[in-house]
Design a binder for these strands. Structure first.
Lengths: 127, 127
DNA sequence: CAAGTAACTTGCAAAAAGCAAGTAATATGA
DNA sequence: TCATATTACTTGCTTTTTGCAAGTTACTTG
């Protein structure tokens, strides 16, 4: 009389619907993009040209961690600071990003894939 | 002094960002999914198990039309009624949906791709 | 001990989503 | 002819989410 598969999922058992429940907004996949490009810190995501608000960024990182797409790990004690990295689950999203890039390449002229991010070396010199 | 490429785009020239500006929410790609599966009428989209609210559906169809992903065409005069179909731009989104299905197949157990939709034949019999 | 840095958090206004009911233009049947 | 049904929306209102600016925490550096 009812589908027992249905109650396990928020909206339906459709794979697309369930991916959208995790990633379906204007910001989440941009954070994944930044991670793929080599960024890993809050401030680095925050500096991307789309200028994600910091409260939204904090929320999205938390959700990505909860859904196992991202892992949080300390990179510095005193003061305690965390950085983020993609899990396998997260890296497996690369084909989704790539298919979007292909579509944009054909239908959104002028778009350009961003270069890989390299963290600037901290200036250790005194002069 | 400034990037002339930047002002052509809402948030940045990143292909992913621009795809998300068109499709980045919980509903738009579900309408595209329904179109791919063979649905074409307002009522058909509306009956999908995710139960999109009708005002949201009307809004998304309008945006998809404005962005050239969907075309609206009359299928009945008296009363005038329209149906929707994917353009080439829209059909080119199939790989994006497919990559999501692949990811879900690996990471979201229990999800199942929906069957192609076939419109029920109208009952022409009198008994 | 003041100022700076990184990573958030908070408060509030504005925008978007969600829900239920309503409307328009017919077709159908009594 | 008139009530009922169908299809495709639209409207009004409440709730939720977003976006912006400012504040906080825990330090380090000069």
């Amino acid at each position: 009389m009812h589908d027992p598969n249905q109650d396990k999922f928020e909206r339906s058992c459709c794979p697309v619907a369930n991916v959208l429940d995790l990633l379906g907004d204007k910001w989440t996949l941009l954070v994944v993009r930044d991670l793929v490009l080599g960024k890993s810190r809050f401030g680095e995501f925050s500096e991307s040209p789309e200028a994600i608000p910091t409260n939204i960024l904090a929320d999205r990182l938390k959700r990505l961690e909860q859904s196992g797409i991202v892992m949080k790990a300390p990179y510095c004690r005193r003061p305690l600071r965390y950085e983020y990295e993609l899990t396998e689950r997260g890296r497996d999203l690369i084909p989704v990003l790539e298919s979007m890039v292909v579509w944009a390449g054909k239908h959104l002229p002028g778009t350009q894939v961003f270069a890989r991010y390299v963290r600037p070396v901290q200036d250790g010199s005194g002069g």
